[in-house]
Design a protein around this nucleic acid. Structure first.
Length: 198
DNA sequence: ACTCCGATTGGCT
DNA sequence: GCCAATCGGAGTA
């Protein structure tokens, strides 16, 4: 299974974010198993990043970001969407990585092979699309992704008799860009903290 | 108690 | 490409 551990997430968000590309996000429940390959992430830094939820200080909504790395920060926005982040750095350094897109590889509830490639891609293409596909909601906030059996990130996993392995993403395959939807963050909006597989 | 607005999406033009 | 939908958190009163 080779799950990513607390040490992996305990580093700086801008280090963790590109290294998550190609890894496998796994969602398990008693009813279903889904696997997606992470293909886009964004780093949100601590107190020196105006775009980060933690910038204005600790509140009930963002308090998980102030704790240990490896926990999920799931929050609700635009009145209808849940977004998934993984907390990074040590306790007291409130930072995290937003998972923006995954490539769906397996879904025990859907015959992906029979779907159009564009429809498959659409399932995980967008931070709110992937949480809807994987049924990740507010009840997953504060979940420890390094120990949970419902949501975790691995280099290899076997489901339904099929083995999946993470993709090795070369540095030259990683695209860099400013983060989406953070224009209010002034000069921090320009920082190239979005990472994606070209 | 009341207001403002967002780490977005999808449907319509 | 534009814009409405939709609601909880946070700040203000």
């Amino acid at each position: 299974m080779n799950r990513l551990d607390r040490d992996f997430f305990s580093r700086e968000a801008q280090i963790v974010a590109p290294q998550l590309l190609g890894k496998l996000l796994v969602r398990k429940s008693t009813k279903s198993i889904k696997v997606g390959m992470i293909k886009e992430t964004e780093a949100y830094l601590g107190s020196d990043d105006r775009a980060s939820h933690s910038y204005a200080g600790k509140t009930k909504r963002n308090e998980v970001m102030f704790g240990e790395a490896g926990f999920a920060h799931v929050y609700f926005t635009y009145g209808m969407h849940w977004l998934l982040n993984i907390v990074t750095e040590k306790a007291g350094s409130p930072s995290g990585v937003l998972i923006r897109a995954v490539e769906p590889l397996y879904d025990s509830e859907m015959a992906l092979k029979e779907m159009k490639p564009s429809d498959i891609k659409r399932l995980g293409d967008g931070p709110a699309r992937l949480t809807r596909w994987m049924k990740i909601g507010g009840d997953y906030n504060k979940l420890d992704v390094t120990t949970s059996n419902n949501l975790f990130i691995v280099d290899a996993v076997e489901v339904g008799g099929i083995s999946f392995t993470s993709y090795k993403i070369r540095k030259s395959q990683i695209g860099l860009a400013p983060r989406i939807g953070v224009s209010y963050a002034q000069e921090d909006a320009e920082r190239p903290l979005r990472f994606f597989v070209k």
